[in-house]
Simulated scan of single mutants.
Amino acid sequence: MLREIFLPLVKYFTPFNIFRYLTFRSAYAAVTALVICYLIGPWMIEKLRVLKFGQSIRTDGPQTHLAKTGTPTMGGILIILAVVVSVVLWIDVKSGYSWIALLSLVGFGLIGAADDLLKIKKHTSDGLSPIQKLALQFVVSGAAAYAIYRITGPTATKLYVPFFKVHVIDLGAFWLPIAMIYVTAWSNAVNITDGLDGLASGLVIFAILAFSILTYITGRADWSQYLGIPYIKQASELTVFNFALLGACVGFLWFNAHPAEVFMGDAGSLSLGGVLGVLSLMVKKELLLLVIGGVFVMELGSVMLQVLYFKMTKGKRLFRMAPLHHHFELLGLKETKVVVRFWILGGIFALIALSTLKIQ
């Protein structure tokens, strides 16, 4: 919005030309979201506490987590609010991709908020039923995927495989249902990972840093041609969205770091995971996201393996507890050590993913 306001005034005041530059708008999108979180965060946490929007803790989990019962939840609303304000201020309003990303974030956030409110009302860890949650996630992911197809055209259905020179698989009519399942899976993967103070928000920061680089180079014809990756003109403007999300996550982590003053709840985790999946569809990095978000894949995989092994062995467990971060806690590692080590893994996975851009 600021771009549309100030660029027409360049003929009167030349420095306004700075709003033309993507790097300037991206940097200040991050700063704006960060400042919003810092300013509104304490007030929102106190409001959630007064409303008794506290977290219910599973009694079958690590006993050290029982002390967290009643900690304000639904803090993901702070992330979404900061991103919405920042993006609306700093994007090129004609960017269709940016609006898809923003509306996807809000859409998944609303599903998560409904789930959180039901948990708070029932005073349990059960909110929406699995069927209800999946159905709503498919609606949002389907709408996002369809909108991406309308903007991108037939090339949207192509899947790019890292490490190969000829690396295009056209999914055709299967692309839409696969995209819906894929985005929904990422929404749930981040949701499952959000079990320790600062874990999910820190890992999303690494993932968004990687995506900020990817959206910028994918939207530049010269760099994308040099690296042998698909050039997508609309992708570059997503960098503004990514930096706004980065600033919001850093601002939220200020309050979410151990010992957490607030949890993001499903409102935050479902929206962050869903938007990662949507971003990967827009810049054709669906498979690369599996590397960038390697820790999320491990966490989701641990739950799936635990359930499968439990059924196959009629009651035995592969891990002491799933998801994986709880397994390491029950092995005796402190929560903060598990979080930092998973952050390190998240950074390594992001670097590995970026290193593949030239290995083709």
Rank of each mutant, 00 (worst) to 15 (best):
I352C: 07
P323D: 12
H325W: 06
N256W: 06
M74F: 08
G172S: 06
H327K: 03
L351E: 03
Q132W: 06
I359R: 14
M321Y: 06
F252V: 00
A113Q: 08
I5V: 15
V166F: 11
N17Q: 12
F296H: 12
D115T: 02
K316Q: 15
F263G: 04
A82Q: 07
H327G: 02
L289F: 12
K314G: 01
P8G: 11
T155V: 14
L345A: 13
T69R: 09
L159V: 11
W343M: 12
H123Q: 15
L110Y: 09
L246G: 09
S212T: 13
L110V: 14
A185Y: 09
Y12C: 00
P230T: 15
N191E: 04
K311E: 13
V297E: 01
Q55I: 06
F53T: 10
G112R: 05
Q360P: 13
L318D: 09
K11F: 06
D222M: 02
Q55R: 03
P259Y: 12
H258Q: 10
I229M: 04
H123I: 11
F263V: 10
A30L: 15
A30D: 08
A350L: 07
R150E: 13
I217W: 07
I181E: 04
G109P: 00
L288T: 11
R25Q: 11
V85Q: 02
S201H: 05
R320H: 13
F138P: 01
W343P: 10
S141N: 04
L103Y: 12
V83P: 05
F241G: 07
S201E: 05
R49Q: 13
T313N: 12
G277F: 11
A185V: 10
F310R: 00
L51F: 08
K68C: 04
L39C: 15
I178K: 02
S271E: 04
F206A: 04
A101R: 08
I45M: 01
L238D: 07
L324Y: 08
D116Y: 00
I5H: 13
V50D: 08
F174E: 07
